[in-house]
Design a protein around this nucleic acid. Structure first.
Length: 611
DNA sequence: GCCGTTTTCGGCCCGACTGTTTTCAGTCG
């Protein structure tokens, strides 16, 4: 039972309480607690074993919920959830995912028509039975029917990079409207979340009706969902929903803050306002009827005694406390990046040649790159053997002599075999400037086995980077089970860097993992894993997640100059068990020299000295 | 159900839009 499981149980309780029309604040308490549990570093199971009482010290968790967590962890059962599920079917929660159906209507339909599932709902809507229920009309029935169809098509959120494709033309269209003074995308897009549910656009203008007209007349609109004086919603043909909010310029900062969210962050800020006798809404900060701020976001934060908080941090994951104490991190920026440490060429599954990839990297202003083709075990990618790598090394040496302004590091993305050995011989490993390791097969292991497999690989003295550490692919593959807490602590000890993979469908580690791993002492690289030239531009998506995980430039190794990086990578090698090497069977002990060399303190000082 | 420099009880963020209603509940963000 890990934190995600416990959080999910609390969310289920919250949903069922909502359907049963319980006290809204009790419901919120469960949701707040779920968030706390899901995003904190320490496993609740471990806390229960160590000292259960301390659970109640966590924000949003009191004596009652601490007791419930303890019971869940100890017994694996949650009596409250069982009791709630006896009153109404748990499947009613599915119905609430349909636009226009919330807890009240789901319950009403269950009680009046006996509808229990999404399929029941769609069938009843088709047969025109919904409108017989008091409070439902024909219009709502049609809306629900459409909602069911759209839910099937687009059950999931869309990747940030996909949203980018659709957002830019829409913005360009809106910018043409008369009287647009300011225009910005807010919401999870501005917070740079890995996926976005819809695109929230904010406009400052004096005459909102002109803006609204322009918005709903966008050629890509499939359907207008709502149209009011200051607020409109459209569904684009791509399936993406977009909400527009129009406010006067003096309210722009307040509206931008409100519309950026997250919801939990907004509630926290507004609650701080209440304590200072201020009302904060999307039109400004008010003391009584008098507006005392709202033109800029800074004014909102200042009103509650805080410095401006970057949007990526606004998730109610401790940013408000950090801001109050003056401890907000100075977040890493894409312009801090000096090189890309994972990319592939046409020697394996890449689409461009070595020379083309390197030239394109140089054109992007990089000081160095690591070329990291696959190893032999990754057959689908045409992985290279030791001798093939050595041929590539000679090409790299030639290029390095010829090129100025950029240095190519010899690298490989070495496959971690199911037993934790590395898929490359010691001789070739010794010739590499940087060894990445990653998992490409046997995803369905137990958490314990997968964790041991990875830990064994990380203990190899030549390993420098653990790439895409959870193996997830957004919308296609769940992360494999692995104890990331242990992996992060081991990586910190061994001086292995964790990769934040910038491929838009990976973004692995994700934001929460990065934050947890960072707190465990781990440090990172952000790499594109580019398989063609254009993908080198994915770097910003990786940086987005690094920022959401609270990373500063000092936390990210490829912000450092080449010489510093070489010091990190060039450690005395020792032959350890791997394919073709000696095989002792037992995993090697951690290498203390590596741990010493890469202690966070040492790194920080080196980083400060190196600028 | 949580929480406390107004409070250990009584608060808990705030507003827009829709559809079904005769004044507002439900949903959404």
């Amino acid at each position: 039972m890990d934190n995600v499981d416990v959080a999910r149980l609390f969310e289920e309780v919250a949903d069922l309480l909502e359907i049963q029309n319980e006290n809204a604040f009790r419901i919120r308490a469960y949701r707040t607690a779920a968030r706390t549990i899901e995003t904190m570093g320490r496993p609740v199971a471990e806390m229960v074993r160590a000292d259960g009482a301390r659970l109640a010290e966590l924000p949003g968790i009191g004596e009652d919920l601490a007791g419930k967590i303890e019971e869940i962890v100890r017994t694996g059962r949650f009596p409250l959830l069982e009791q709630l599920a006896r009153k109404v079917p748990e499947t009613l929660v599915q119905m609430m995912r349909i636009e226009g159906v919330g807890p009240k209507r789901a319950r009403l339909l269950y009680e009046n028509l006996g509808l229990k599932t999404l399929a029941d709902l769609e069938k009843a809507a088709k047969e025109g039975r919904l409108s017989a229920v008091r409070g439902f009309g024909k219009v709502l029935e049609m809306r629900i029917l459409r909602g069911c169809a759209e839910h099937r098509v687009r059950a999931s959120r869309c990747r940030l990079s996909e949203a980018d494709v659709h957002v830019q033309p829409l913005l360009a269209h809106l910018a043409e409207a008369p009287g647009v003074e300011k225009l910005e995308v807010a919401g999870s897009y501005r917070r740079r979340k890995d996926t976005v549910g819809d695109v929230d656009i904010l406009v400052a203008a004096r005459r909102p009706e002109e803006i609204a007209r322009r918005f709903v007349s966008y050629p890509e609109v499939a359907r207008v969902l709502a149209r009011g004086e200051s607020k409109c919603s459209i569904l684009l043909r791509s399936g993406l929903q977009s909400d527009l909010r129009i406010v006067p310029p003096e309210s722009y900062g307040a509206a931008l803050h409100y519309f950026t969210g997250s919801k939990a962050h907004n509630i926290a800020i507004r609650t701080l306002g209440v304590k200072k006798h201020l009302k904060i809404n999307e039109y400004g900060v008010f003391r009584g009827r008098r507006r005392v701020g709202g033109r800029s976001e800074e004014e909102i934060f200042r009103a509650v005694g805080l410095p401006w908080i970057p949007p990526e941090l606004r998730e109610a994951r401790g940013e408000i406390e950090a801001a109050r104490e003056g401890k907000l991190p100075k977040l890493v920026d894409v312009t801090d990046i000096r090189g890309d440490l994972q990319m592939h060429t046409d020697a394996t599954d890449g689409k461009n040649t070595l020379a083309e990839m390197v030239e394109a990297s140089r054109a992007r202003g990089y000081e160095y790159v690591a070329v990291t083709d696959h190893t032999h075990a990754v057959r689908v990618a045409g992985g290279l053997s030791g001798s093939e790598f050595r041929r590539q090394f000679r090409r790299i040496e030639t290029l390095n002599r010829r090129l100025s302004g950029i240095t190519i590091l010899k690298g490989a993305e070495v496959d971690i075999l199911p037993d934790g050995r590395l898929d490359l011989d010691e001789e070739t490993l010794a010739d590499l400037d940087v060894v990445l390791v990653s998992v490409h097969s046997k995803f369905h292991m137990t958490e314990g086995a997968m964790t041991e497999r990875v830990l064994r690989a990380l203990q190899h003295p030549r390993v420098r980077i653990f790439a895409h550490p959870t193996g997830r692919i957004l919308g296609r593959r769940e992360p494999y089970p692995i104890d990331l807490g242990r992996v992060a602590r081991a990586a910190a000890d061994l001086g292995v860097l964790l990769e934040i993979n910038a491929q838009p469908d990976r973004l692995d580690l994700n934001d929460v993992h990065v934050k947890i791993a960072r707190e465990a002492g781990a440090r990172f690289v952000v790499s594109t894993d580019a398989h063609r030239i254009a993908e080198l531009d994915f770097m910003r998506y990786g940086i987005d997640q690094a920022r959401r995980g609270w990373c500063t430039a000092a936390d990210v190794a490829n912000t450092r100059p080449l010489e510093d990086l070489r010091k990190l990578f060039s450690r005395p090698g020792r032959v350890a068990p791997s394919v073709g090497g000696s095989r002792t069977g037992a995993p090697p002990k951690p290498y203390r020299w590596a741990a010493r060399a890469l202690r966070v303190g040492t790194w920080r000082r080196a980083s400060a000295a190196g600028g």
